[in-house]
Amino acid sequence: MRDQVKAWRLGRRLILGIPYAWLIVFFLVPLLIVFGISFSTPKLSMPPIEPLLSYGADQVMQVRLYASNYTFIIGDSLYLAAFANSVKVALISTLLTLLIGYPMAYGIARTSAQWRNILFLLVILPFFTSFLLRVYAWIGLLSRNGPINAILLKMGVIHAPLALLQTDFAVYLGMVYSYLPFMILPLYSAIEKLDPSLLEAAADLGCRPIKAFFRVTLPLTSEGILAGCLLVFIPAVGEYVIPALLGGPGTLMIGRVLWDEFFNNRDWPLASGVAVLTLMLLVGFVVVLQRVQSEKVVSE
């Protein structure tokens, strides 16, 4: 009996241990390595960094931490501009996905059960194809000789093909297109939970439908809105593929800066510094939003 309990406890630890071990090996350790590299300087070697630990001729073990990467990033307006632009693009993309996603989620939550499954499937359908392929497909659609320009020309709306690709417009289009499902899913679950009799009560008390939306529906689905916005905003800030493939040379985003530092300049320490600062920026956002949310819950 005791052995059985012991075996059961061991099994439980094992089950819990596997995902933790996975996270430690493939998430925490790399993160610490990146954090460490960010305090190093570049060196022409393999790997191209100065080791933090050195064992000098005078038989002294030295730990050398360079803060230069951080002072350089903070001092250089290019990086700040890239950070600012990333946040701006992510915010606008989040807002656009919210504005498009909310009516869609509302519609899905309020249709009959059979239609709901079909509509849901349509929202998830893009995930059946690789993300990269879908972004490449947009290159084809938006290009100078692509179908969008061809249709507009044929209809006589424009007389010369538009330069759609390598613009901010293309970046926003790609962002909204890619992240829309992440917005719709949490919104759907929040709206679906909303008791329809609350809206009837609002109407009964003399509230017109539009006003009832702002006074009842919106506040009661705020958790879903917050969850959806975080799911879109966080990956959007660090997004690399969409601005790299659809954006122009002017689309300065932190993901691209990081890539350039790492692969083109082979400045691993500086790239790590950029990565650490991006991470801190996002963690800061999440912490602030969570605090706002928990204060709201407490006041309720």
Partner: peptide, 20 residues
């Protein structure tokens, strides 16, 4: 007439109080 224009009020079975 839509509900918001009727001189009628209702007490719902579930009460339908606004939870927020």
């Amino acid at each position: 007439l839509p509900p918001y224009e009727r001189p009628v009020n209702m007490m719902f079975q579930s009460y339908a109080l606004f939870p927020h």
